[in-house]
Simulated scan of single mutants.
Amino acid sequence: MAKETYVPCLLGLFRRYGYDGATLSKISQATGLGKASLYHHFPGGKDEMVQTVLDYLERWIEQNILQVLKEEGEPGARLQQMCDRLRLAYEDGNQPCLTSILLLGSARDVFHDRVQVIYQSWIDAIAHILMESGMEQNLAQERGEDALITIQGSLILAQGLHDPAPFQRVMQQLPNHLC
């Protein structure tokens, strides 16, 4: 099987345990692959596994978030569509954000640059919509940053409280707050 076959499983493991906690033993058990097979598919080890998951996430964000934000149409509707897709991706607030998790522990220095690019692209896409609506560039950029702060913060709070309600509320209210 291609290594991409294992991405959903790896995504789940890294979301649950983080980079440091997702040991090769746990990865082997979850994927059904022995350690030798893991290194056959991922010669770069755990770093390559995370890079493969990040490749998947970048494609998903491009197709499901950035493209939606770049389409023609009413800004509020595009922002709502982004929020609807985020609700699906994070299982209505029941799943944490992998990119945030990768900024913790020993993975921070390894994956920071990729996470930064993902976040900046997302902020820029939101800012672009707000500028289309007539907002000044600096304010639009700040609001794009505030949007990610709100999204990420609500995911962290939902995980910390074991209650997805804060994330759900943010997804419902964010388009109106931004516009």
Rank of each mutant, 00 (worst) to 15 (best):
V7A: 09
R114L: 04
S37R: 13
Q81E: 15
E62D: 15
G34V: 10
E58Y: 11
M49I: 05
D92L: 12
P166H: 06
L130A: 03
H40E: 15
C83I: 04
I129Y: 03
A165Y: 14
S106G: 11
T52P: 10
Q116N: 11
Q80P: 00
L103Y: 01
I27C: 10
A147R: 03
T150D: 09
K46N: 04
L104E: 15
T150Y: 07
P175L: 03
Q80W: 06
D113R: 01
L38Q: 13
V170D: 07
I27S: 08
G21Q: 07
L13T: 04
A165R: 15
A89R: 15
G34M: 09
G144D: 03
G76N: 12
Q120I: 04
E132V: 04
R85K: 12
P75L: 12
W60K: 15
G160D: 08
Q141W: 05
A30Y: 01
V50N: 06
E62W: 07
L33R: 01
H128A: 13
V170R: 02
A2T: 09
E74K: 15
E142K: 14
H162F: 10
D84A: 15
A140T: 00
E142V: 14
C9V: 14
C97Q: 08
M1H: 07
L155E: 05
Q80E: 14
T23E: 06
P164M: 10
L157A: 09
A107F: 01
Q63S: 13
G34N: 15
Y6S: 06
L86I: 03
I126L: 11
Q116L: 12
K70L: 13
